[in-house]
Design a binder for these strands. Structure first.
Lengths: 198, 198
DNA sequence: GACTAAATTTACACTGTGTAATATAATTAA
DNA sequence: TTAATTATATTACACAGTGTAAATTTAGTC
């Protein structure tokens, strides 16, 4: 890297920083669909037209911001520490680094990953599944199994419900290559491995 | 149920059906943000003004559609079969029913849960984590562990990566009540229970 | 200090929004 | 069947936002 040292104009850096900060700010206050180029430019204290010198529209800007985010995360996951170690050993520091990175930039990540951004349907569906998992875990059998594993209760809930909805979405995305029954069986297998202690 | 038999005007039923079908159709062709009341009414072959007699705006319409979806799903999860059985036994038919319901209405669910709806950031992040999980599972150790459990490879990938990103998002949503290190430890525990065979 | 590039200002044509008033069509009830 | 009610259509309007163009000002680079 750093071959030809592009050295971007500080005005460009400044404008983009203002825009991205303003975007995060607005996302803390409004739903995405309410963020207009108008408002964004106003909040960023730049001219509306200037926005178009940098991004085609707001989705395009989000795309670019996502690119940057991915670049950051990739840098962490490909850190030198991970190369010579085994998978088992390298996973731990990678995970810690990733989570710490997110924690350090939590204002950004929270707004980007965890606000109203989740379209209403997924959100509602997830909530329902979460209730289901909670109910399940609160039964005596669930409590016992959980206690044996040393897994925090709410974390197990997050994990289980996200896994469920995420797998369903992936299944749909891949045009349902397995029958519902087969999927259900697989869920049972995966579940069991959470709860049955060795 | 069926106390006062509200008996909605067939015109209302028709208009809402046209609108919702048109919405699904458009969502198959465009990103959500490109769906305007204009286009929607045109596609539904109703007058634009009529839309406002039923919904405040498009997010409001999505909200209502989500309500209906949740009602359907809830009906399945609270089916009579589930009441007298134990948790373990009732879970299986519920899961099958749920998945079959989704499969039957897959055009709707696919568009609603699995299209471009996932805001770019989550999508990109999920893709990255998926790569990570794939790489991990393709190693000899991973293959062996997987074979022992009888879990399908790609399903394990979907499951693991969704669980990961979903848990991270929940952690952020709850304002990070655990340290990154603790979270990482919990991930290791949950992971281990997938792979270590009894 | 001159050159270059970014940002601003102003303007314009366009698409979409939300509401109001009135007219027409379909449904329901007498 | 007629009369009522109620949904939808039509037209119109004020407003907010979009994306682009041209000329100008401001800031950075060499």
């Amino acid at each position: 890297m750093d071959h030809a040292a592009p050295r971007t104009d500080p005005r460009i850096v400044r404008t983009r920083r203002l825009l991205r900060d303003a975007f995060v700010e607005l996302l803390e206050e409004l739903d995405v669909e309410k963020i207009s180029v108008n408002r964004l430019a106003e909040r960023a204290t730049i001219n509306r037209v200037t926005f178009y010198l940098h991004y085609r529209d707001i989705p395009d800007m989000m795309e670019k911001m996502a690119d940057d985010m991915i670049e950051d995360i990739r840098a962490i996951l490909q850190s030198p520490a991970s190369r010579q170690l085994s998978v088992q050993e390298s996973e731990w520091p990678l995970m810690v680094n990733l989570l710490q990175h997110i924690a350090e930039h939590c204002r950004f990540y929270k707004v980007i990953l965890a606000t109203r951004r989740t379209p209403i349907f997924t959100e509602r569906f997830l909530r329902l599944l979460t209730d289901m998992v909670v109910e399940r875990i609160e039964r005596p059998e669930g409590e016992a199994a959980l206690a044996a594993t040393g897994v925090q209760r709410d974390i197990a809930v997050w994990y289980g419900s996200s896994a469920l909805i995420g797998t369903i979405i992936s299944w749909l995305r891949h045009d349902m290559p397995y029958t519902p029954v087969y999927m259900a069986k697989q869920f049972m297998l995966l579940r069991r491995h959470h709860e049955k202690k060795s």
